[in-house]
């Protein structure tokens, strides 16, 4: 790990002022569960770490106009244990509990989860975010069993790592982002982006921007996240789906199948006005994966994603 300086600001303004224009200058430190491993592996090497866990306003969960506001530094455990969240947002609680190690839930934060880097093993083993070699990605001809089956026309083939991403997109959340030049609100669906080159990142955030809070407009007791993991022990989902049932068409967003959370509007449309049962859910699941284009080793993920959609729909129908 390269040597770095450490700052521990108490206000957002102070923190914001410490960030620079490049990821090499400074990076935000929340729980550190992802950032420190990246630094240890030499995959990132900021000169300064800016701890945000001591900024009070980032650490609260509060009701807001029928919806919810979650501070970016709220830990995954705090979220999962919050009574209001448990009552109104099962999709979030299920996503949090899927992150199986209590240690990670205790340390990891909402902001950190949304901004964590991909777990693609080519990236983590030092082959770069897009795993390019001689102008070509290693992934299509490589070990791609955990890679994307949607949105994978290249050059990015990894899957978005965040388990909350799909749920927040489905919940129509927006992200409040603060920088020295002001504040902006980014809809969750636009927060995640597919990088086109090695230097880009997987969210719209710039190096000098801080995600301060997540705003969810309305309660969603009939929502669910269903993830398929191989292990009960710490493991990454092979596929996941978050679902929010609304008066019109249900909102369905797939996780861990594409470089970004992947909405499946056709599947939702199909269900509009129909009863939700095993049969309709199965049909919707098929539609959700219609566009899937698996790589050489990950055809099985299409099946897993379908099952996730079906099971998330049926769980959401049951309610919190």
């Amino acid at each position: 790990m390269q040597r770095f300086a450490y700052a521990n600001p108490a206000t957002l303004k102070e923190a914001s002022g410490l960030l620079g224009n490049s990821w090499d200058d400074a990076q935000i430190l929340a729980g550190g569960t992802d950032l420190l491993s990246l630094m240890k592996e030499g995959l990132t090497a900021p000169k300064l770490l800016v701890n945000i866990k001591n900024i009070k306003e980032l650490t609260a969960i509060a009701p807001e106009k029928g919806g919810l506001r979650i501070g970016a530094a709220v830990t995954l455990d705090e979220l999962a244990e919050n009574a209001l969240v448990r009552r109104q947002f099962p999709a979030l609680v299920q996503a949090a509990l899927g992150i199986t190690s209590p240690q990670i839930r205790n340390m990891g934060t909402m902001g950190g989860d949304l901004c964590q880097r991909p777990r693609c093993w080519y990236f983590r083993q030092g082959h770069g975010l897009l795993a390019m070699r001689d102008g070509k990605s290693l992934i299509p001809a490589g070990e791609n069993q955990y890679h994307a089956i949607l949105g994978n026309s290249g050059p990015a083939y990894f899957v978005s790592a965040s388990s909350f991403g799909p749920a927040l997109v489905a919940l129509d959340a927006s992200m409040r982002v603060v920088s020295p030049s002001g504040t902006r609100d980014v809809p969750a669906a636009q927060f995640f982006v597919t990088p086109k080159d090695e230097a880009s990142r997987e969210t719209v955030l710039q190096p000098n921007e801080i995600l301060t809070a997540i705003h969810i407009p309305a309660a969603a007791a009939h929502s669910a996240t269903y993830e398929i993991r191989q292990r009960e022990a710490i493991d990454w989902p092979l596929a996941a789906a978050s679902v929010v049932l609304k008066s019109g068409a249900p909102v369905i967003v797939l996780g861990h199948v594409a470089p970004i959370p992947w909405p499946a509007p056709e599947a939702g449309k199909f269900l509009a006005g129909k009863p939700l049962n095993e049969e309709t859910a199965t049909e919707a699941a098929k539609l959700a994966l219609q566009g899937a284009a698996p790589l050489s080793q990950n055809g099985y993920k299409v099946q897993l994603a379908r099952v996730s959609v079906k099971r998330a729909l049926l769980a959401a129908a049951k309610g919190a």
Binding site: T100, R231, A233
Partner: peptide
């Protein structure tokens, strides 16, 4: 590709 304990998977007690 998996010289770590994340993708070199071992069982946990629940498995």
């Amino acid at each position: 590709l998996n010289p770590d304990m994340e993708f070199y998977k071992l069982a946990g007690i629940g498995d």
